[in-house]
Amino acid sequence: MTIASDAPTPTMDSEELRRARLARIQLVAKWTLPVIVMALTLLAWHLYVTINEVPHYILPSPAMVFQTMFTDWGLLSAAAWVTTKLSLYALALAVIGGVALAVLFTQSKWAEMSFFPYAVILQVTPVIAVAPLIQIYVDSAFAAALICAWIVAFFPILSNTTIGLKSADHNLRDLFTIYGATRWQRLIFLDIPSALPFFLGGLKIAGGLALIGAVVAEFVIGRSGTGLGLASTLLEASYRYNFARLYAALFLISGLGIMIFAATSLISHLSLRKWHESALNRES
């Protein structure tokens, strides 16, 4: 696909028509197939529960879950809002902290040598083991949970961005040297654009991890009656054998995860679509 090559005048022969039709069908199938699978699963679930008369404290029917979603909407939406805020704040702080540290690391070898091991320690220590400690020292349950979620989300941003900032083409580096670029110019015009695809890869991972961190933190911290977000609600519902509410909370958590993934993917696509290989739509 180049501008230079003289493309032969497009004539739609039967082969091409067939291929175009196949592409159209695939596009439709991409959306309809998952929806059909979902509908069939819900139907099977519903039939299983009604035919076997499974009691709702063992497995509620999907209809009941959706009904609970409506009747408990006040409680559930408040909880969902808390979890959403937790995840997004954690992600935002992870981006700020991760990028700032990555820039610091690439600008100063000494800083990298001094602090990188601690970033790794922070990453490899299971957050579930640290959470109770944080809860002791931080009064606000929300702040404590936020710190936990941040710890989980920040490492992929840091490590990806650090690699990205070092990934600029070596000939371009030489060119910048030849043209007498300052350190600042090198960072802004070369290293940061080169790092962008790596950073965005890290962002996608961190988005998912921020939610996981939030859920883990809520399980540990929200337990003591602080009533944090969706995960606390889920846990509480399980204590009360309110399985319909448990499932409703679970669906909302999944939905939140899907939304975060879609949003980070969209951001990534929009930032890279003009130039990066990963975002190109090549004609085969």
């Binding site: 043209y179 007498g180 110019q185 654009p193 130039w275 990066h276």
Partner: peptide, 17 residues
């Protein structure tokens, strides 16, 4: 630089100065 246009690539020596 793949992230920018032909004109901006050619402008690089000026931009850096």
């Amino acid at each position: 630089m793949p992230w920018t246009t032909v004109a901006k690539n050619v402008a690089l020596p000026f931009r850096l100065r």
